[in-house]
Amino acid sequence: MKYTLAVLVENRPGVLTHISGLISRRAFNIESITAGSTEEPDMTRITLVVDAENEDELEQVVNQLDKLVYVIKIVNLTKVDSINRDMALIKVRALPESRSDIVDIVSIFRAKIVDVHPETMVIELTGEEDKIDALSEVLKDHGIVEIVRTGKIALSRSPVAAKNN
């Protein structure tokens, strides 16, 4: 099963090395990892999607991560009512005769066209991961040139911040 963890860390050099080093050393399965700045200048928030057999295995991941000196706090968002988003930029082949088809698809998915080239278009879509998977699937017929995705980020709907949880 996949679990989503919000990992709050001190914004110090080497912190990502420590996190990735630990994941590799303990042979944990990580589906995605994203990091970015937060409301606090000295804090970075990492969203980890962990593939674990069960809660016991997940507990190991959490406890081991928690031992890292720069890790301030870990919140398991898997069972918390939360908003989960992934963003993709998809470059698709778009010759003049197929452009209107693609525009239709983009509008059905509430995606955005952010760049147009004589032969290609770049589409931006933000949503849950399966929505992005679905769009990529549909666009395959037109020929996908390349895709980039951010990996999942997640935020609880609760009025309390993870750091104060």
């Binding site: 080497g14 090395t17 420590h18 080093g21 630990l22 590799s24 050393r25 000196v69």
Partner: peptide, 12 residues
Amino acid sequence: TGITTPITKHNV
């Protein structure tokens, strides 16, 4: 520090 990350309690 890169080399010893998995074998130290902490490094800097």
